[in-house]
Design a protein around this nucleic acid. Structure first.
Length: 155
DNA sequence: GCCAACGTTGGC
DNA sequence: GCCAACGTTGGC
């Protein structure tokens, strides 16, 4: 079972917001980057594990865990002219953008700040989050996943 | 608020 | 198909 990381701006939608949703589940919409889209659409499987990361905030950090629920499906916001995610060039018969439904699992024992992850850069080599990547959906290698859980659980 | 990184757009 | 200009992300 694969592991992923999703970025979100907590001012817009936080882990707490996810936990407060009906069925603690939210359509993860608004992804408008092709590489991220491909991970969402082609990489993820139902049941996969997801780290939730808070970006563009006082302490950017990995804050919790969630699960992928069900298959990829077209992101309705791409067809909504009033949505900030509207894409007039997307074709209804061949939608360009997809979303996944994401269900809350847990908060980490403590948030794990990006600055702290950087202290372990050697062990996290290849982790897209540390390479100033603008990717909002990225894979997490098993070894990296275990280290993250270990750090969040420990000192 | 600054600015570096970097993905996307569009002229040629 | 190249690549410069542009816009956005996101840490600091």
């Amino acid at each position: 079972m694969a592991c992923w990381l999703l970025k979100t701006e907590p001012d817009t939608f936080s882990l707490d917001d996810l936990a407060a949703r009906p069925a603690q589940t939210e359509p993860w919409d608004g992804v408008r980057n092709y590489q991220a889209r491909n991970f969402l659409r082609d990489g993820m499987q139902p049941g996969d594990e997801v780290f939730i990361y808070h970006s563009s905030c006082a302490v950017p950090a990995i804050v919790g865990l969630a699960d992928v629920v069900g298959p990829a499906r077209p992101d309705p916001s791409q067809f909504d002219p009033h949505s900030p995610y509207y894409d007039p060039r997307s074709d209804r018969d061949n939608p360009r953008w997809v979303l996944r439904d994401i269900r809350y699992r847990s908060h980490l024992p403590r948030p794990l700040p990006l600055a702290e992850l950087r202290l372990h850069a050697a062990q996290l080599e290849g982790f897209a989050l540390l390479q100033r990547s603008r990717l909002s959906v990225m894979p997490v290698a098993p070894g990296h996943r275990n280290l993250i859980l270990q750090l969040a659980a420990g000192a």
